[in-house]
């Protein structure tokens, strides 16, 4: 115990310590500078001073970033969500099927073409919320582990996406639907989602309950939190954001395929974990996940920039995810020792 705490000074000062996200930001800067240096040595050009490369990089990660924001709150609550990628596939198909233009004669629902954009979006989001709520209800009320419940949803939702058109892609969306994926729109949507979730996790009861459940579910129950009901909400929100990502992906590609979003769940989890969200729950922030997302983007874009083989990229990505989890475990251990 230090001298400050020895004195009977009661808590008054509201001064915060340096945010823990600072460490992750330093990692980001370190990695960026490494690529910058390698860029000059190996390619004879700058890595960072290329606005086009940076905007492509952000665009690449922002769709998965939307999912990562939802996954962040799931992991903070002590859970995990493996179904996000499949929900992307399922909702991309469903939303697209209600967004087709009337001039396309082989539309899936010929009577339901040229609908206003809110309809396919709303249907897609509702399906996402339902999938998430099923995840949450299974976890909360049957007590099966989140890993298994969301694994089941992962397989089921993917199967549904394939069954929906018997494997055929769905194309020709209305212009207003396609606008959702145009240009930098995915980045804008990501930023809106991130800001909202940041505020929700920090200033609302929903956020406080989420952290409390992840920190100690039993204590949360004893303080009067309805842990089961809140768990359903958390997974429903994650499903909502996966669906949003699905809509954006479909809109951007002007077509929806059943295989869309494959492995997105793992990239999203990786972004959160790299951003300091603890897999044991109760710790992490949207800001951290955002930095984790950028780190993720910088690494992929950096490898491409250095003309590293795509196979190496994938293998290295695996290593980085494991390293982030090891770092989290190490931090955890240090804490246990100290207390």
């Amino acid at each position: 115990m230090n001298t400050i705490s020895q004195q009977a000074v009661a808590a008054t000062s509201a001064k915060r310590k340096l945010p823990s996200e600072l460490n992750i930001l330093l990692v980001l800067i370190g990695i960026s500078l490494t690529f910058e240096l390698l860029g000059w040595i190996l390619q004879g050009q700058s890595f960072l001073l290329n606005p086009q490369r940076l905007s492509i990089m952000i665009l690449q990660v922002s769709v998965i970033g939307i999912i990562a924001i939802g996954v962040t709150q799931v992991i903070i609550s002590g859970g995990i969500d493996l179904s996000s990628g499949s929900i992307v596939g399922a909702t991309a198909m469903i939303a697209m099927s209600f967004a087709q233009i009337g001039t396309f004669e082989r539309a899936l629902y010929p009577g339901l073409t040229d609908l206003p954009v809110v309809i396919p979006v709303a249907i897609g989001l509702i399906v996402g919320v339902l999938c998430g709520a099923i995840n949450g209800a299974l976890i909360a009320y049957t007590r099966i582990p989140p890993f298994i419940a969301t694994l089941g949803m992962m397989v089921t939702a993917r199967g549904f996406a394939k069954w929906y058109t018997k494997g055929q892609p769905i194309s020709f969306p209305t212009d207003s639907f396609a606008a959702l994926g145009k240009g930098m729109m995915p980045v804008v949507i990501f930023l809106i989602v991130a800001v909202i979730m940041h505020v929700v996790l920090r200033y609302t009861r929903y956020g406080k309950f989420t952290y409390a459940i992840g920190a100690n579910a039993h204590a949360a129950r004893v303080t009067g939190i309805n842990v089961e009901r809140h768990t359903v909400k958390i997974y429903a929100v994650a499903g909502l954001l996966s669906a949003l990502a699905g809509i954006v992906v479909a809109a951007r590609g002007l077509t929806a395929q059943a295989g869309m979003g494959q492995m997105y769940e793992l990239d999203a989890i990786a972004m959160a974990v790299i951003g300091g969200v603890s897999l044991s729950g109760g710790r992490g922030s949207v800001l951290g996940t955002c930095i984790g997302m950028v780190i993720f983007g910088v690494i992929i874009s950096g490898f491409t920039f250095l003309r590293l083989d795509a196979y190496y990229q994938e293998m290295l990505k695996g290593l980085i995810i494991v390293a982030a989890v090891v770092a989290d475990m190490y931090r955890q251990k240090k804490r246990v020792k100290r207390s």
Binding site: K208, A219, T223, G224, G282
Partner: peptide, 22 residues
């Protein structure tokens, strides 16, 4: 430790958790 504290959260969150449920 098991059923009381939210060890990873700060003092403020720990103190207010019961109050804000109601």
């Amino acid at each position: 430790k098991e059923t009381g504290c939210f060890l990873t959260l700060d003092c403020l969150e720990n103190i207010q958790s019961a109050l804000i449920t109601r």
